[in-house]
Design a protein around this nucleic acid. Sequence first.
DNA 1: CATTTTCGTGCGCTATAGCATACAAATATA
DNA 2: TATATTTGTATGCTATAGCGCACGAAAATG
Lengths: 183, 183
Amino acid sequence: MEQIHIKLGRNLKSIRQTRGFSLDKVSELTGVSKAMLGQIERGETSPTISIIWKIANGLRLSFTTLIEEPPSEIAVITKDELEPLLEEDGQYRVYPMFPFDPTKKFEVYSVEMDAGCTHESEAHSPGVEEYILVSSGTLVIEIQNTSYTVGAGSAVRYAADQPHSYRNPGGEIVRYDAIIYYP
Amino acid sequence: MEQIHIKLGRNLKSIRQTRGFSLDKVSELTGVSKAMLGQIERGETSPTISIIWKIANGLRLSFTTLIEEPPSEIAVITKDELEPLLEEDGQYRVYPMFPFDPTKKFEVYSVEMDAGCTHESEAHSPGVEEYILVSSGTLVIEIQNTSYTVGAGSAVRYAADQPHSYRNPGGEIVRYDAIIYYP
DNA sequence: CATTTTCGTGCGCTATAGCATACAAATATA
DNA sequence: TATATTTGTATGCTATAGCGCACGAAAATG
């Protein structure tokens, strides 16, 4: 994950420049010192929320405008370059394809489960939903004492604010993609 | 304006408690020290954006969730308790009824113009819009070398990214409400 | 050109963000 | 009731956020 204050600096500088402001002008509008503004733009510092608030106020910016990723950027991720999270003795491997990002509301990862493997998952917070898309093998999901069998090409959605478990009963590896949505 | 870090602390504490987490648990989830989390909740400190980022990430919260005002609060504002911004020798008085708030995208103020007064306004940033509702008297707005006469009960909307001026040609006071929208 | 003004960065200093640790109160376990 | 365990707070200490000021480069003005 790229450092947040780098993003902040880039955004601030681009906003300032498109408006044709100097650091002095922004300092006057926001009450933040010119030197500090320069450091923020260069990503040399991680400002406090008070300073960010002053900047957002003085420049009449919404909070997210300062933090958000500049739109439409292409990101290609391959499993090879990712370090999987290993559980169940390495038989359950989680690849964080699109890790959680506070400016969004979800995260996406791919999972590989070896034959015969079982994985228990704790209850998440209320309102959290999981979307599972099985791409190969057959996955059994148990939730509220009921088992759901999901073959390759099928998908499930369920409220994840309760304990649930994944099981690969077959003889071959199971692969699925999971989307976790946070309300 | 209430200090932002007070709000942040309140929100964080309420989120933590509804999820039934201890400070230790949150510290473990976020990588932020327990002591710091306590201080943030008590509003004793203004954390840096890096820390807020860690918290949002660890708790799977959107950025705004931490900052936003708890919904549905009643706020009553009267002009009497507001200090107006005086311009044009006090003949042009601006009352900030709902000052800009980075979690919203607009601000609202009421204006009083004495008889014969004129006020010039600089061009705002691109995309900014102004909504004017005249409540008493007659206001003349000049924009792009064209004059628009707006009587009591009427309203105007225009792109404010160009110079514009307000004039009260009549013999009585003019009052109007203005909404400034920032894209 | 010479001179002034405007711009961004570098410097030294103070206040405070942030950590690890220790502590006191409350709750749980015996 | 005594003993752990878990809670939040208080205490130094270090790193750094944030300021005012001054500097050199660039642009503007004469």
